[in-house]
């Protein structure tokens, strides 16, 4: 299958390992990965902060870049949710019927959905001998309704010990620009998330979105919390062989 990767601008800039992992993983499963180089940002930050016109410009651009592809995969749950749940609203907010039609034709999948629902695999042949906790991000949980798909993928990883995260369904306090506009409340929220994460004694906290992971991981790092954060894709790409991490 030919799969177009939407890496998401946040990952493009800060977490290149996640895009590498998705590529390596999908190729290992026998699929062809293409990377449309004109891709930039889906417009999520502009939309959720109230900048409808700018969000619409970016949505149109996204639809142009990814419109022709049968399958678009992204390792960002919140970007997948933006394209699938918000683009129609963006189009209506700015009165752009053409964008609404274009958005309807986009086939954007979050990675775990693509693996489980489209490819029908849960065992992706990964090996990751660590204690791992999974944080279901709000977009994963309540917009995309990923349910237990990420957990099924993690349970099939050899060597991996999955531990339950208490109060997992509670938001980490990131919320995009919320983390800046309401920094104090945001920090109060992540403090509790960090407490729960550390309580699991996990080595690694994983999620389907690097936005939330940057937030929780940023707090863990500041506190020297001793827990690493990793995107789900990076765990699924790991096989124990050094090359599998996809570094050049």
């Amino acid at each position: 299958m030919r799969v177009a990767l939407f890496v998401a601008c946040f990952n493009d800039a800060l977490f290149p390992g996640t895009g590498r992992a998705v590529t390596v993983l999908l190729e290992r499963l026998g699929h062809e990965v293409v990377f449309p180089p004109g891709q930039t940002c889906c417009g999520q930050m502009h939309w959720t902060t109230g900048y409808q016109r700018e969000a619409a410009d970016l949505a149109r651009r996204f639809a142009d870049v990814f419109g022709g592809h049968d399958a678009v995969v992204t390792p960002s749950a919140s970007c997948a949710a933006t394209v699938r749940a918000a683009y129609a609203r963006i189009a209506r907010a700015v009165g752009d019927a053409e964008l609404e039609r274009a958005a309807d034709g986009l086939a954007v999948h979050e990675l775990s959905e693509f693996l489980v629902d489209v490819l029908g695999v849960t065992d992706v042949g990964a090996y990751f001998p660590h204690r791992v906790a999974y944080h279901p991000t709000c977009h994963s949980l309540r917009t995309l309704r990923l349910g237990d798909r990420p957990l099924r993928l993690l349970r099939a990883v050899r060597g991996l010990e999955l531990v339950e995260l208490p109060a997992a369904e509670e938001c980490c306090g990131f919320g995009g620009t919320f983390a800046l506009k309401n920094a104090d409340v945001s920090v109060a929220m992540v403090a509790d998330k960090v407490r729960h994460v550390r309580g699991t004694c996990a080595d690694v906290l994983c999620a389907a979105d690097n936005g939330c992971l940057a937030h929780i991981g940023g707090a863990l790092s500041r506190l020297r919390g001793g827990v690493r954060v990793m995107h789900l894709a990076e765990i699924l790409a790991a096989t124990g062989a050094p090359a599998a991490a996809g570094r050049p």
Binding site: T48, L141, R142, C171, F178
Partner: peptide, 8 residues
């Protein structure tokens, strides 16, 4: 803006 839009 007093919300993370978590959806709960």
């Amino acid at each position: 803006y007093a919300s993370t839009l978590c959806g709960a």
